[in-house]
Simulated assay, not measured.
Amino acid sequence: MKQLLTILKYALLLAISGLLMAYAIRGQDLSRIGQTLREANYGWLALTLLLSALGYGSRAYRWKMQLDSATGTARTSYAEVYHAMMVGYLANLVLPRMGEVIRCSILRRTGGVPVEMSLGTVVAERIIDVVVLLSLLGATLLVDFNKFWAWVTDWLLKGRYDALARNQTTLIVVAAMAAVLLAGALFGVLRNLERLQQNAVFNRLVGFARGMLAGVFSVLKLERKGLFLFHTLFTWSVYFLTSYLTFFAFPETSRLGLGAGLAVLTFGAFGMAAPVSGGIGTFHLLVQSTLLVYGISKEGGIAYALVAHGAQTLLVVLMGGISFVASMARTGRGKEVVSGEMVS
């Protein structure tokens, strides 16, 4: 039954991706999209793929810094960390958000790092990415505020503001109920804490939570915080360049400037973060909508999104496939890193 529910869940997510893609190309001239794809200068894509490969290498090094800080040891090799990360990205193309767990599981087998500890570093990584992404969103809106405000008022909020106002009371009631339930659950745990501490399952959960927290706060214990910041900035600079340089692959988007590149990066990243397989559908729709703000036709926007997303997906498949073979070829050491020591 559980397997059936899992299959149905991923089938539903895939169906949502398909519907979003269908919505993105609805009513468009497919022959024009095909012609745009055929006339694209794919030399620019080769450059973006090279930059992306460097970005993955930098991101893996940053993750290794977190792992070394969390475990108190540098015994996990860069190759182990890199291969685990790329396999996780490969898994995310099929199983949304499961790639994070899978890469931590692989690192446990190849490098001996406890899953809860490596998962904590991934959570810290995601928190940092969210902070960067929100900063980019603010910068995007500041750079081209008038364009986006006109888009919001003319399309996004047209006829929707009144609906939100009518349902304001309902939203407040739901939020209040959620707060009461959360407070009740917290009170119940605190009241029965001594009894819970005698429960084996509760103690396992506490141990898992401690390992997660060690990973989350690994950033605070980094010895070379400047290097960590450099790799963070380098990774996001690569993301920006891949978005911007792809403009030059198409005559229609080649005139766009750095502000448009920043906007495509920002909203495209939100599309990739959606819980669907590889951002399929959500990325394409958000990028197409963003390019509409800059005067690019729907056909030109979807062609850009198809090429940009397709190229990066093929790169992940290639690099992730190689890393999968490399990870499977390694023999697990059967050890765990605990407080800086390797134990059997």
Rank of each mutant, 00 (worst) to 15 (best):
G334I: 12
R224F: 12
M85H: 13
I280S: 07
V132C: 14
E39C: 08
V338L: 13
M177C: 15
Y42M: 01
A269W: 04
L196Y: 07
T140G: 08
I302T: 00
L196M: 10
I16Y: 08
T246P: 01
A183D: 08
A308R: 00
G207P: 02
S297G: 01
T71G: 08
L90H: 02
V293R: 03
T110M: 03
S254A: 14
A178H: 06
L227N: 06
V113F: 03
H83R: 11
W63P: 00
I127Y: 14
A179Q: 09
E252K: 00
F240T: 11
L54H: 06
F148M: 09
Y23Q: 04
I102R: 06
K9F: 12
R210W: 12
F228E: 06
A165C: 07
N41R: 10
R103C: 03
S52W: 02
H284Y: 02
G55V: 04
L285K: 00
V180L: 15
L285M: 02
A176Y: 10
R191E: 03
E80N: 10
T169G: 13
T290H: 01
W149S: 11
A70P: 01
D162N: 12
L134R: 14
Q198M: 05
G27Q: 00
S327G: 07
S297R: 00
L156W: 14
K2C: 03
V173R: 12
F230N: 04
L245T: 05
L47Y: 07
A150R: 06
H231P: 04
V325W: 15
R97G: 08
G301I: 00
H231Q: 04
Q28V: 02
G112P: 09
G111N: 06
V189C: 05
L213G: 12
W44F: 13
A53H: 04
A22C: 08
P96Q: 04
L90P: 02
W236V: 08
V152N: 05
V173Y: 11
G268M: 07
L306E: 01
V174C: 07
A249Q: 00
M85A: 11
T282W: 01
A311G: 02
M86F: 14
L8R: 06
R333W: 06
A60D: 07
G27W: 00
G259Q: 08
L181I: 15
S277D: 05
V180F: 10
M177N: 10
L19G: 12
L157C: 11
L315D: 05
A303K: 00
R26G: 01
L171K: 11
I102M: 10
R224Y: 14
M86S: 08
L182T: 13
